[in-house]
Amino acid sequence: MPPRHVLLAVLVAVTWGLNFPAIHLSLQQFPPFLLVALRFAVIAVPTLLLVPRPRVAWRWLLGYGAGFGVLQFVFLYLAMDTGMPTGLASLVLQSSAPFTVLLAAVLLRERLTVRQGLGVAIAVVGLGGIAVHRAGLDGGAALVPVVLTLCGGLGWAFGNLCNRQAQADSPFRLMMWMTVVPPLPMLALSLLVEGPATIAASFHGLTTPTGLAALGGLAFTVLVATVVGTGLWTWLMARHSSSVVAPFSMLVPVFGIGSSWLFLHEPTRPAELALGTLVVGGVLLGSTGRRTLAPPPSSAAERRTADPAATAPAATAPAEPA
């Protein structure tokens, strides 16, 4: 890639890494399920009014929205709300990559290469080590947020498969229309679990420092990480092979952990950093070289985009950022 495109790819990784501290700030004001509903509702309304619907089957659009939009963020936001360290969340969410490879092999009968299998195995060892390490903290209570984050990675992987099956004519429009799926079910879940009183209370004090920081975090998540970050990533994927662009998403945990330390003063234990290196290395190993889930060459570059909210270059080239 030319240097300008390299800088753009790094910029995307920076925005997606900063997305995790932004989520942390928003969770200081809003309950997690309501926050997910707000995050997607802000994009869904203009999407319905302004963006043409992509030519895809409804089942894949709904599946993409359910996996990526609902399941991923229900578990991720709940994990961060119940004590998952912000930087570590950006790392553990990389589990979406090995989950995607394994689900594709089981559900789509895609052949798993030796390289991919080795990468999955290394990533699983790293994730398992993090889980064991966290299980020894706080009487085992620290393990629950890790498990929730892994469930978020599994939801993202399910969304990846639906995105792959959709074979959209415009991946950016598919991403925008995916945001139409989560708001109503997430609002219903928030009303049921968090309750009207908690929801109403979260809108009080929005002019306080905490409230303004929460609104700023939500704006960053929606406008910068999702719209700008995804737009740039899609543009790069359309001009370069995924094997060249996708590894840049491995910088997301680096910026996620670094920004959490810088802005939130959140330390990451050396053991977790070492185990995280295994996760990143395994994901990178499995995402380079031959790809078994590549769509037809005529549209491969168009259909491959990756996620923010945390993002891993799985063998399927994840469809957009967390």
Rank of each mutant, 00 (worst) to 15 (best):
G128I: 03
M175C: 08
D169S: 10
A142L: 10
G128K: 12
C162D: 07
A188Y: 06
A166N: 04
A135S: 13
L143S: 08
T113S: 13
G117D: 00
W177S: 00
H133F: 15
V193K: 12
R173T: 11
N160F: 03
V124I: 15
V181H: 00
G153V: 00
L184N: 14
G152V: 02
S170R: 10
L137R: 14
G153T: 01
T113G: 14
G139P: 06
G139S: 08
A157T: 09
L161M: 08
V146S: 00
N160W: 07
V147E: 04
L174P: 01
A188H: 03
Q167G: 13
A142K: 11
G129E: 02
G129T: 04
G128Y: 07
L127W: 04
A123T: 02
G159M: 03
N163T: 04
L184T: 15
Q167V: 14
R115Q: 14
L118Q: 14
R134S: 05
M175F: 12
L189E: 05
A141Q: 11
A141F: 07
V144G: 08
M186E: 03
M178Q: 13
R164M: 03
G117M: 05
F158C: 13
L118I: 15
A141V: 06
G128V: 09
L189W: 10
M176C: 05
V132P: 07
L187I: 14
Q165R: 15
P183C: 05
Q116V: 07
P171R: 06
G136A: 10
D138F: 08
